[in-house]
Simulated assay, not measured.
Amino acid sequence: MRTTFDAEADAVYMTLVPEIEPGRSVRNEVVETAGGTVVLNFDQAGMLLGVEVLGATKLLDGEFLAGAERIDQG
């Protein structure tokens, strides 16, 4: 699993498969919560490919965020 964190966007993406090829994600389930949004990405067969968390600093533990790969730092 690969976890990336963009602090500028306050977003985390957790990739649950080795690679998500372009076009593989065909269905998204959106869950609105107090403080943010969680988006589940699925392929045609219904396999969960990844999870996006918007409002990550409100929805996820700080230690978890600290361990994520930062993609907002040049």
Rank of each mutant, 00 (worst) to 15 (best):
M1I: 09
M1T: 10
T3W: 11
T3C: 08
T4M: 04
D6Q: 10
D6F: 11
A7E: 09
A7R: 15
D10R: 01
D10H: 05
A11C: 09
V12S: 01
Y13F: 09
Y13N: 01
V17T: 10
P18M: 06
P18N: 07
P18G: 06
P18V: 09
E19M: 10
E21W: 02
E21Q: 13
R24G: 03
V26D: 06
V26M: 08
N28L: 12
E29I: 13
E29C: 03
V31K: 11
V31L: 15
V31S: 08
E32T: 14
E32I: 13
E32K: 13
T33Q: 15
A34P: 00
G35T: 12
G35K: 14
G36E: 06
L40D: 03
N41C: 03
N41T: 02
D43G: 10
D43C: 12
Q44D: 13
Q44S: 11
A45V: 12
L49F: 02
L49I: 08
G50Y: 12
V51N: 04
E52Y: 07
E52R: 08
L54Y: 10
L54E: 02
G55W: 06
G55N: 02
T57C: 05
K58G: 14
K58V: 04
L59R: 09
L59I: 10
L60N: 05
L60W: 06
E63F: 01
E63K: 15
F64V: 15
L65I: 08
A66N: 08
A66C: 01
A66S: 09
G67K: 15
G67P: 13
A68C: 04
R70W: 09
R70Y: 08
R70L: 02
R70E: 03
I71F: 07
D72V: 00
D72P: 00
Q73C: 11
G74I: 07
